[in-house]
């Protein structure tokens, strides 16, 4: 299975933290659960003025991901994933590795509704 997570790094490492926000993350890491290989995909929606969630969700779908793990998920992205039958899990741990392990143990909760509105990633904040 291909699991996608928003991150703020440009090279894949299991120790990377899952980003605070989905649509405005710098990159996505896509992890193959069988081979345990990870690749990084740039998030071209990061600095878009509107509709970042739609664009970011499109990127994930186009990467043939099977599931998403995120800390927050906006309404538009949530709707698209729902329509594409892509489950979105809540990231309950800090790193990509920990969340992936929890996903394999089937202990991560599933998002049943989008996160509350009003979150914007602050620029220039240390990552």
């Amino acid at each position: 299975m291909r699991i996608a997570m928003p991150v703020e790094f440009t090279s894949p490492s299991p120790a990377n933290e899952v980003a605070e926000n989905f649509a405005r993350a710098q990159t996505f890491v896509i992890c193959e659960t069988e081979s345990e290989k990870c690749e990084i995909v740039k998030n071209s929606a990061q600095n878009t003025t509107s509709g970042a969630g739609v664009k970011a969700a499109q990127i994930i779908i186009d990467q043939d991901a099977d599931a998403v793990i995120a800390r927050r998920i906006g309404e538009n992205a949530f709707d698209i994933f729902k329509e594409a039958h892509l489950p979105v899990y809540k990231a309950e741990y800090v790193t990509v590795e920990e969340n992936l392990a929890a996903f394999s143990r089937e202990t991560l909760p599933l998002y049943v509704s989008p996160s509350p509105k009003g979150y914007r990633k602050r620029r220039g904040r240390p990552v």
Partner: peptide, 20 residues
């Protein structure tokens, strides 16, 4: 084309987001 991302392509079909 849509710079406001009001359209997406899911499951082989275009979906529109009139709000965007």
């Amino acid at each position: 084309f849509c710079r406001f991302h009001a359209l997406s392509f899911i499951n082989g079909a275009v979906r529109t987001f009139p709000k965007l």
